[in-house]
Amino acid sequence: MKLLTGLSALCLMVLLVSPGCEGEEACLSNQHAVQARLYSAWSTSDKDSTLENVSLIGIDMSDSIYREQRLSELFMPLNFESDTSTFVLGVSETLKDTLSIVYSKELDFISRDCGYVFTFDLDTILYSRSIIDSVSIAYPTVKYGESTANIKLYIY
């Protein structure tokens, strides 16, 4: 009887201390991008807009984030080494705007499986006005696990 108790205890112990018992957390990737929704500048209320042939590239970068795509929202990854990320948004060779996002960042520890991330707080957005009419910050926080649109881009 006592041996049975000991064995049953060992079985339970194996169950509890086995790493297989603890489900590994799924870690999200690309959680450092500003989500921008496109709106028509001609509408009096916020009306979703879609742009054709959209290209987006970070300033001084050789790789494009988007290249001649049809989009109604953009994800613009922020630079960890700087407090400003600047992008060139274009719909043709001549119609282009520069968009600079100024932000502060804070280090966060997500979990033991996923480690560290940055949480960003958007401060100011500077832009030229070829295709962009105006920009507003709808939700200033770029945070791990959140998918709320951060800025509204009003397009001509």
């Binding site: 450092h32 970070g58 790789d63 990854p77 922020l78 960890f80 080494e81 990320s85 480690g115 560290y116």
Partner: peptide, 14 residues
């Protein structure tokens, strides 16, 4: 040491 991955601008190490 830890790394925060950034596929576009480059990873952050500290």
């Amino acid at each position: 040491g830890y790394t925060i991955e950034n596929d576009y601008w480059g990873d952050f190490h500290d």
